[in-house]
Amino acid sequence: MLSQAILEKLLAFSDEEIDALNGKVNIDRSIYLDDEETIDARKILDEGALIGVRKHTRFMSYPAHKHNYIELMYVYSGTMTTTIDDHDIHLKTGQLLLVNQAIKHSIAPSGENDIIFNFIIKQEMLSFLSSVMGSEYKLNDFIFHSLYSSENI
């Protein structure tokens, strides 16, 4: 369980959330995008970082977009709805969704108590993990088979 101080910090409104509450209905796509629809890891991660985490901005919809990284969305509290290929995916507290890069998806607005964390994982991180873990580890096989194969294991 999180301490009260950390929980209060998570629930505090970011500048983007304050803008949304004041009537700004669209995100500033220039903050994130490298083209018309691709969110660029270089714009949201520190230089040289292979992985990062951000709290998802509440109260605004995120129009259809894709990433040049892998995203792991974790619902800490509340709910989240994302749409992939015209299929709504509803997540609730404790659930997560792994979205491969270049998968176009949109996200419905979330409410005040919907706390979602976005883990940003660059492809280089997977290469690094592979080299550290070595091929003899079953976890390594599972991760890479899950990411790069359509077969069930």
Rank of each mutant, 00 (worst) to 15 (best):
Asn22Arg: 03
Tyr32Ser: 00
Val53Arg: 13
Lys92Gly: 00
Met133Leu: 12
Asp35Tyr: 08
Ile27Arg: 11
Phe59Tyr: 13
Thr82Ile: 04
Thr83Gly: 00
Glu151Gly: 06
Pro63Thr: 06
Met125Ile: 03
Thr82His: 01
Met133Val: 05
His56Val: 15
Phe144Gln: 06
Thr83Lys: 02
Lys43Cys: 09
Ile103Asp: 03
Gly78Gln: 00
His105Pro: 04
Gly94Met: 00
Leu50Gln: 12
Met60Lys: 13
Leu7Met: 08
Ala12Thr: 07
Leu45His: 08
His65Arg: 13
Ile89Lys: 05
Ser146Ala: 03
Met60Phe: 12
His67Arg: 08
Ile153Gly: 12
Thr79Gly: 01
Ser61Met: 13
Thr81Lys: 09
Ile27Ser: 06
Ser14Asn: 03
Asp19Gly: 04
Asp85Thr: 06
Ser130Cys: 01
Glu16Lys: 05
Lys104Ile: 15
Asp40Gln: 10
Ala49Asp: 14
Ser127His: 13
Ser135Leu: 10
Asp141Arg: 14
Lys122His: 08
Leu2Trp: 07
Asp46Ile: 12
Glu47Asn: 13
Ile39Ala: 13
Leu11Cys: 05
Asp35Gly: 09
Phe13Ile: 01
Ile115Arg: 07
Ile115Gly: 03
Gly111Tyr: 06
Leu45Ile: 10
Ala102Ile: 02
Glu17Pro: 09
Ser135Val: 14
